[in-house]
């Protein structure tokens, strides 16, 4: 395997992703675990960028680091036992089993896929040619296809409906004002929601 700039960056990003991922599960402090998770997700964003998927990297940073990780940190801040820094993971045996099974499934699914693509030579240097000629990867192309009726127009508008439902659902579930409102019949007596 030749050492190229890509392979060095790949190794650094992989080490970052795996190392901080390991710290997520070993860290006793829940808040630190959430911060390590953000670092791990950042490594994944870098890997997306390395695979010449800049939009996916952008989505990873804005949605996963910017929003999901913030939600997780909020959830920790809202916990009454936030001060408990020595939280024990009593389900670690089950977690290890699930992780190993998931890894085995991923390998068994992806290995034939990689053989089909003829990418059994992992040292293949894809960066030699400019990846710009790969069709449909530019962001402007994606934007055009997003609103094109022949491509993704319907899923695009359905996504809006989905987001609307998410927002209304969030308002219904969390707002204390809704529970007192006699007009809403469903879901208001499940206070645990």
């Amino acid at each position: 395997m030749d050492i190229t700039a890509e392979s060095v960056v790949f190794l650094i990003l992989s080490a970052l992703t795996l190392g901080s991922g390991l710290l997520v599960v070993t860290s006793r402090n829940l808040f630190h675990a959430a911060l390590y998770l953000m670092l791990s997700l950042f490594g994944v964003a870098g890997l997306f960028a390395l695979l010449t998927a800049p939009f996916l990297a952008f989505v990873q940073v804005t949605v996963y680091i910017g929003a999901i990780a913030i939600l997780i940190i909020f959830a920790i801040m809202l916990t009454p036992q936030v001060t408990r820094t020595n939280a024990r993971n009593t389900q670690w045996v089950g977690a290890v089993v699930v992780a190993v099974v998931f890894f085995a499934v991923m390998v068994s699914v992806l290995t034939p896929l990689m053989d089909d693509l003829g990418a059994d030579d992992w040292s293949a240097d894809f960066s030699e040619e400019d990846p710009d000629d790969v069709p449909g990867t530019s962001l402007a192309d994606l934007g055009e296809q997003l609103v094109d009726p022949d491509y993704y127009m319907l899923p695009f508008e359905v996504a809006s409906v989905l987001l609307m439902a998410a927002l209304i659902g969030a308002a219904l579930m969390v707002s204390p004002a809704i529970a007192d409102d006699p007009e809403t019949e469903t879901g208001d007596d499940e206070s645990g929601g």
């Binding site: 949605v63 939600l71 909020f74 959830a75 934007g143 997003l146 987001l163 969030a170 308002a171």
Partner: peptide, 21 residues
């Protein structure tokens, strides 16, 4: 605080669609 975080997530995802457009 969680309501605001949830609303933020929804509009964050909206941004993802606005950007390529």
């Amino acid at each position: 605080y969680y309501v605001f975080a949830l609303v933020f997530v929804v509009f964050d995802v909206e941004l993802i669609f606005l950007f390529p457009w």
